[in-house]
Design a binder for these strands. Structure first.
Lengths: 201, 201
DNA sequence: GCGGTTTAATAACGATCATTATGAAAATGA
DNA sequence: TCATTTTCATAATGATCGTTATTAAACCGC
């Protein structure tokens, strides 16, 4: 018995999920969440519990609704196809929605409140500067024959930065130095070589 | 004329830098910052301006004091050595200090307040689960001969996750789909192949 | 239609946030 | 020594945070 719920719980969770995706866990305030869900505060609490519980449910829904490419990738016949499909799926997911780019799994802790946006931009610019330095260096290497003519300095710089960023995330997650070194070695194992470079061992 | 400053501005900035490194920009409160610096609130304001300005100065100091391996790497003779040194330096930096792992450039937006720690752990566990699934799949691939005997499924999984995380960071920074696809292609170009896999084109 | 129960909406809660008045203390120049 | 100027420390500011009383409205079984 009792009064019926007037809002759709799943719709509300979807709306909440998008806010978390865009602003991260801490950056999303209850004012944001209730506004997006079209539901008053106590209604969200009664339906999902507190903010942490709400986020966990949104995260679970995220994986089952948006990261469906991963189980699909795992079904493919070869490891290479698995990796290729996972990469492709991630690119799709992280660039499909302009209003919430990136991945909630990372974004959930990467994003923040609106007031911190200038700081995030500053960090983006810092990283871009590092990437630009690498790119210029690789252009020189190409000119010097240290990289082959087919090499793309911008791609190599972006790739290297991606590995660096990924390792930073992993370091924060507590990955051991040995693991990170293995990752770096793997990342280096495909480095293109020009006429002046030695053969890979 | 006027009273002399009683605290060391550089020491205070170093202390502040470590707090930002550990807690991120938004996760570090002024209470944390003043406690670490051993300086009262108005003194920090008069010396560095507001929180954003303080963070920017800490970030600048971070790059010049801790990311010194990057300009050093750029001096090396070959592009491969540049990449190798950058990766090595990043590993050093992100694992050297147990109290603030990771990289401030990422950490600045990755970390948060102490109350959000359980959520960060939940996200870490989610990512670990994905990585475990990939590893198990790659172990199967190895057993099936799809990956060579020398392949390390755990390393491949960690490497792939690192690239995925790095691309997520880049996607959030506004990288184009084309750029991300180039990064993914580069990341795939060194994928090991077993007896059943086709040659790379 | 009436008691029991659940939801809805308003408003308030205490805590913490970044920021800053305010006034005492200390150091300079004359 | 006095006037001026800068720093220091205490404490307050308004805003926002997540969370929850409180009260009114809607539904069920009987």
């Amino acid at each position: 018995m009792g009064r019926h719920r007037e809002f759709d719980v799943e719709k509300a969770l979807d709306a909440v999920l998008c806010v978390f995706w865009r602003k991260g866990y801490e950056g999303a305030s209850y004012a944001d969440l209730t506004a997006a869900a079209g539901v008053e505060r106590p209604a969200l609490y009664s339906a999902f519990g507190n903010k942490e519980s709400l986020f966990r449910q949104a995260l679970a829904r995220y994986y089952e609704r948006y990261v469906d490419y991963l189980p699909a990738a795992l079904q493919l016949p070869t490891a290479r196809e698995v990796a290729a499909h996972a990469l492709r799926g991630a690119i799709d997911l992280t660039t499909r929605y302009p209003e919430h780019t990136g991945c909630l799994g990372i974004q959930g802790v990467l994003a923040g409140s609106d007031e911190a946006e200038p700081v995030r931009q500053a960090l983006i610019e810092s990283r871009a500067e590092g990437e630009a330095q690498l790119r210029e260096r690789f252009e020189r290497a190409k000119a010097e024959g240290d990289l082959p003519e087919t090499a793309r300095p911008d791609t190599l710089a972006a790739y290297l930065m991606a590995v660096l960023h990924g390792m930073a995330v992993q370091a924060k997650a507590g990955f051991s130095r040995e693991t990170l070194e293995a990752v770096a070695e793997q990342a280096l194992s495909n480095w293109p070589s020009g006429r002046a470079a030695p053969e890979t061992a």
